[in-house]
């Protein structure tokens, strides 16, 4: 990984440190799986989601609420799919 991308990813990773444990756990698993393959579009979507307040973000990730934005919705899907249940199915 080049230095510039590494710095960008590291910043995003730190912004994934949240106020709610639920989100910390989701992001922990997300990075384990996607760190190497996250593209620019994914980075941008993630960055937008990380701007949200924690309760609003968790409402999206837990499926209680939905977003109309297709880019964000795709990222939410990725965050949801790394749940352990996905591995069981």
């Amino acid at each position: 990984m080049d230095e510039v991308r590494k710095a960008r990813i590291n910043r995003l990773k730190w912004h994934c440190r949240r106020a709610l444990l639920e989100l910390d756990l989701v992001f922990d698993r997300f990075w384990e799986r996607y760190e190497d393959s996250l593209d620019a579009q994914g980075e941008a979507a993630l960055e937008s989601l990380l701007e949200l307040e924690d309760h609003d973000l968790w409402a999206l990730v837990s499926g209680r609420e939905a977003t109309d934005d297709s880019q964000l919705a795709a990222m939410i899907e990725r965050l949801r799919e790394v749940s352990p249940l996905a591995n069981f199915e």
């Binding site: 639920e22 756990l25 989701v26 837990s62 499926g63 209680r64 949801r80 749940s83 352990p84 249940l85």
Partner: peptide, 15 residues
């Protein structure tokens, strides 16, 4: 018990 089902799925892998 809204939310419990989702928590079970997300964090325990259990329905």
């Amino acid at each position: 018990l809204p939310g419990i089902h989702e928590i079970g799925i997300q964090f325990a892998g259990v329905d």
